[in-house]
Amino acid sequence: MMTNQTLGRWGRPPARQCEYLVVSFSPFSAPLRQRWRNNGVSADFLGDYVKAFLPAEINHAEIQHAVAFVANEFLENAMKYHECSVDIPIGLRLELTSEEIALTVSNSIGPAQAERYRDFVANMLSQDTGDLILARMEQGADGSDESASGLGLLTMMSDYGVELGWRFEAQPDYPEMMTVTTSAVLNLTNPEGAA
């Protein structure tokens, strides 16, 4: 059985002033096709939402787009890989402080899939992001979605300066399930987006 683990950047210093917004989706409420459309609606909403809280000196359009891109990729991945046989919702959380914006998504997967994903993440973190993007694109030329997977996460790191972290945890209510939580942190004090 896989034990609880964290990879990448995980955990932030407690902020005195933190505001957050949580969106939750039940796997039973709508089929994937129908749900897909809502990913864009939710992602655009979060992008618009953060814009209202940003200080004037930050490039609003850049941050709005970065949040919308990350939220959309997180939701797409969660919808694709979430274990739909159990009543565990997909959760998306947006957290704002004066220094950073953190987006986290959590979904449930089986233990074998969790181990494969953990190994994939560990491998991704051990290599140069720019080189990996090129390698993924070259592999993706064969047309398979699997070989193209990971490009969204790599794009977040490479194009948006996002720091990613992962937490794999056992599910107390469903011993046969793991919860994977992915976190993306955008630094506002020195954002890539405002460069």
């Binding site: 864009g40 959309n72 694109m137 030329a141 490009l151 969204g152 794009t155």
Partner: peptide, 17 residues
């Protein structure tokens, strides 16, 4: 205005071609 990572993959396939 917006292109997801699957769309970026599609563009990369075209560029390689």
């Amino acid at each position: 205005d917006f292109l997801n990572s699957s769309g970026i993959t599609m563009l990369s396939r075209f560029v390689i071609e």
